[in-house]
Design a protein around this nucleic acid. Sequence first.
DNA 1: ATAGGGTTAG
Length: 714
Amino acid sequence: MPYWEDFLWNTIIMVNLKKQRWMNALQMFRNMQFSFAKVTGGTIVKLLQACGKVGALNEGKQIHGYVLRCRLESNLSISNSLISMYSRNDRIELARRVFDSMEKHSISSWNSIISGYAALGDLDDAKNLFNKMESPNFKPDIITWNCLLSGHSLYGSYETVLTILQRLQGAGFKPDSCSVMSVLRAIIEVGFFNFGKEIHGYVIRNKLDYDVYVETSLVDMYVKNDCLKKAHTMFHNMKNKNIVAWNSLISGYSFKGLFQVAETLLKEMEKEGNKPDLATWNSLLSGYSIRGHKEEALSVIHRIKRSGSTPNVVSWTSMISGSTQNENYRDALEFFIQMQADNIKPNSATMCSLLQACAGLASLKKGEEIHCHSVRLGFVDDIYVATTLIDMYSNAGNLKMAHIVFRKIQSKTLASWNCMIMGYAIYGKGEEAIILFAEMCQMGIRPDAITFTALLSGCKNSGLIEEGWNYFDSMKKEYNINPTIEHYCCMVDLLGRAGYLDEAWDFIQMMPLKPDASIWGALLISCRIHKNIELAETAARNLFELEPYNSANYVLMMNLYSTLNRWEDVERLKDLTTVLSVKSQQPVWSWTQVNQTIHIFSAEGKPHTDEGEIYFELYKLVSEIRKLGYQPDIDCVYQNIDDNEKEKVLLSHTEKLAITYGLMKTKSQAPVRVIKNTRICHDCHQAAKYISLAQSREIFLKDGVRFHHFRGGD
DNA sequence: ATAGGGTTAG
């Protein structure tokens, strides 16, 4: 093999690498082996770097094989590159094997393996190796310290980052630009932006290496701190603007909904010869998506394709999560289909957004589907996915499954405990919520404000007054958490529903926050239940003032008047709503899924095609359950009609129709699942109890607030 | 000659 041919191969590979055509370069390496040319050490190192960068593990392994065949492992640079290649491909155990098999180590070897552990979040192993390397031969240098810093800025706490920074200085090193970057990252993560500004000053005062990375990170810090002006001036003064800085600024404007500026910046950067990359497009797209501009977001997808690139996981997850957050759950599922059609593999973030969409739809079947998907793709061990699964199952009607997922989590986070407690709460299982709370405290996990919202909701839905009261007191006393309006609302609801209306009133008078609509709403609902007209009128007066266009308040009040047969007051309120032209109440609907179809029963919309048959079946059911003791509760009808008519109206409640249809269409013993968008009335609640007994079928009914589980008349 | 630490998008 003539020397010039070896040289040619090496040169071609190097040129490809330099032009960032990683895959081309790796292909060249393969071709070259067939012609038995020799690669130089430098080329191998560069190739291995490329494998680390693009995640080409298999190519990296091939190069490793080549290294072993040619006995190049004694070359320290090559072995060190192998360590780095494996750890960048998340295969730290292989990196460790290379490290352990080396006869000699250099300081770079130590730094490579420590960096590997730190970058994967294995901070203990990184620290152990750090201690091990300290010997007469080796002393940690600034790079070793920065490896620890970087690891802790990603996976550790803000405090540990600062401690390491101090120890680094104690060991006689001066923080360089990489150290500053890690500290900045920790600051952005925690949101201590004031300290970020101090660091900015520190960098300038100490004339630290003020390179393009530090500059970009500072721009990004100001963007994330909502100081777009400051970020823009800094960006403007950058000598060498890089694409990352452009992207950061564009993401800032897009996120704030200032799309004009974002688009102008995009044009400017193109004019200055920077081709937008995927991060640029995704920065723009996420803003559109999260603010509900579906069409614009979709058009960015097309612009990406037109620019010759392919929308990636982040692009699609943006689309999905934006839809979910705007409560367009169907869109979210639709985008997932499009994403799969484009052959883009979802990751755990995608799964979380999808599961949230299923929770929003309360669609158990879809949720189970996404769960299976996550299992197949190996995402169920991800703590975020697992926590979202708990949330999905408790919102879609399978508390048992939520509990199974919860128990399987190895290292539970505060969020997972909170979700599970909330799960019990929405099922009205207050005792279980309390037991779980106690277990959580025993594990040494400190509850936060959200924990107490969940716990108090549990007490509220189960009527556990004394317990709720005690927990409310302990919030401030034992845990030093200031109750928010949500906690006060739970208490008003708890007291009011139990009939302690005067106590609820006193409670409202004593609370240090200004009562908002939710507080008065809770009181009004309690007043309706217990038919207390005086307090109801006070609550309503406040509500009409706070939200004059919320029809639900007027309806509640009219219901109360009608229960007391005060029809002239009902008319008066009706006139008031006409004068104010309050939009009528949201349509009431229930739905149930039979096979792959969702059947919607709406109070106003068009009737179901099988309506006659359903009513026939329902009449049969009602006469059956009457024998078991069911009594229609005509107090649930707020029309000025006679009692026989009222009983007829009760039969037309959408949840009864949905339950009946579910029973008719499913023969098996599977539970019937019905979702209703508003609260279930007392009569339907009673009827469902008896139906579950008469038909020996479980019935799950989710209403606007919580879950009801009927089994054997319970 | 050729190693090790860093910036943006969900």
